[in-house]
């Protein structure tokens, strides 16, 4: 029962990543792309946590921590670059 609900949740997360990918390719400006990328990475963090449940390996949570850290740094660096050109 719990597994079926979690599979539905994983499907909804995949759908939200696909929708943000649509905004990523059809963006009005450069900042739009970065926002879409940010939402995509935040959704992938919870997807990685879900995959760690299905694969039965709780070590994948560490991957989610590092992924969140790196995506935060990337977004900050891109925003800094757009504002003051490094």
């Amino acid at each position: 029962m719990a597994n079926i609900i979690l599979q539905i949740a994983g499907g909804i997360m995949l759908l939200s990543i696909v929708l943000s990918t649509f905004r990523f390719f059809k963006a009005g400006s450069l900042v739009d792309r970065v926002v879409a990328f940010d939402v995509m990475t935040v959704a992938s963090i919870s997807l990685i946590a879900l995959i760690s449940h299905f694969a039965g390996r709780t070590i994948y949570i560490d991957v989610a921590i590092i992924y969140g850290l790196l995506s935060f740094l990337g977004v900050i660096i891109i925003a800094r670059y757009l504002e003051k050109s490094l």
Binding site: I5, L6, I8, A9, G10, I12, M13, L15, S16, I17, L19, S20, F22, R23, V35, A36, V39, V42, A43, S46, L50
Partner: peptide
């Protein structure tokens, strides 16, 4: 609870569009 969270993620990306 996880299902509720994924619904909020979906609403976020619908808002993005």
């Amino acid at each position: 609870i996880t299902l509720l969270g994924s619904v909020f993620l979906l609403l976020g990306s619908i808002g993005l569009i």
